[in-house]
Design a protein around this nucleic acid. Structure first.
Lengths: 231, 231
DNA sequence: TGGTTGTGGACTGTTGACAATCGACAACCA
DNA sequence: TGGTTGTCGATTGTCAACAGTCCACAACCA
């Protein structure tokens, strides 16, 4: 890339973005949360995180606020932050919210799909072939749903969904750890369903995509028993 | 109230809550935003707010982050905060999101209504009689919808809705300022509809309340033309 | 012994100061 | 003149320190 060309680079590749320390701290906390390094209900003293990561308390504070918005951290009445325990009701809530958000997003995405989105989804669809394990598939799945939310072009809808994303990841890890997942679902079958949904989106069949997504989330909600077994 | 009684006061009345400066700053900014004292797109330098309110930049930072979550403030690439301009697309988005959230909330609220909630809604219903002006009614309306979201007992749903609340207030003020509101709607009629919705909730008719709310939001969405006229 | 009263430690809330970044505008030069 | 290079002011990012609050535990007393 030539650096003496004065025309600005507008598209994503090779653009320098300054990432604040707060963002870095948030990323690190997210990682730790998903990795299960922080137990449910464990306190997260600002000072500890700060010294551990070699920053001051300011950025840590901001990161914690960010994570509170994502629903994985909560502040007690005295302002101390702690890992928000996962409860069965949370799962139920997340289920309801997904049911409200994602079918709508699917409809809008199908309606508003541009040629670029089109190509994007074709690529995703192709990537599905390489999902030989549940682990790979789950990674693909998150990317897929995120793509739908992005394609819907609704900032607020996406923001609401984002707050669910991290929590779903935590559930997934927790369930995998207990090996209580994959409750009667076959991977090839699951992949088939996703292929179907992706096809509807690509074809721009808005109403059908919405219905399919509603059903899709419903299936996901069937994990609830596994969740109950854990809680 | 006796202060030498060791039993803690759990219910709302007379309980001392420490409000951080950040919360106070956020409240003040919210007020200014709704009052129209901050123009669309106007920068909000931390230092200005801090000196104006006699606090340091820390709490102001946190307040601005809070308002960004509420969707009324945005940060540019360099971290500077500014008043997020209201656009027609925003209104459309808010409409879609309300349509996804509130009917669901109404259904859940009707299902889960406790005797206390019951009394609460009865009180609200009575308060409707004193809404002689649109202004009073709008205040009542916000309280009403908030009560529904609270009664649904879904943290995340409520959180998603809260981010819309402030923005709706901004729209309302903006439209009132332009006198482009009340587009063919009569106040007594509007009050009648609300009375009907409230009755369904109180009677616990979940499905009917959900449908009514969907229609209700749909009517609200008819303000869109007025919004377009403004934008 | 049972309840009250210090006292220390662990945190958070808030602040003021310093460093870094960026736009605007002036100075400079080929 | 057109483009490049300083420089200044405005604003945010980050930090270290201080003050306030609360819990836990010990000391104390009736």
């Amino acid at each position: 890339m030539r650096l003496d060309d004065p025309t600005p680079v507008s598209s994503p590749p090779r653009r320098l973005v300054r990432q604040s320390l707060a963002d870095g701290v948030a990323d690190e906390l997210r990682r730790a949360l998903i990795a299960g390094e922080l137990a449910d209900g464990a306190p997260i003293p600002e000072v500890h995180v700060a010294t551990r990561l070699g920053v001051s308390r300011g950025p840590v504070r901001e990161a914690l606020i960010e994570l509170e918005r994502d629903g994985v951290v909560e502040f007690d009445s005295r302002g101390r932050s702690l890992v928000r325990p996962l409860t069965e009701e949370d799962f139920e809530e997340i289920f309801q919210l997904r049911l409200a958000i994602e079918p709508l997003a699917a409809r809008l995405a199908a309606q508003r799909m541009t040629p670029e989105d089109h190509a994007n989804f074709e690529g995703l669809l192709a990537g599905l072939d390489e999902c030989g394990t549940w682990e790979k598939f789950h990674a693909w799945d998150v990317e897929f749903h995120e793509a739908i939310l992005l394609t819907a072009h609704q900032r607020r809808l996406h923001a609401a969904w984002r707050t669910l994303k991290l929590q779903m990841a935590r559930w997934l890890m927790e369930l995998q750890r207990r090996r209580s997942l994959v409750t009667g679902h076959k991977l090839p079958q699951t992949i088939k369903y996703h292929r179907r949904l992706a096809a509807l989106l690509i074809e721009g069949k808005a109403k059908a995509a919405e219905t399919e997504m509603r059903w899709h989330i419903g299936v996901w909600g069937e994990w609830l028993p596994a969740v109950k077994a854990k809680a």
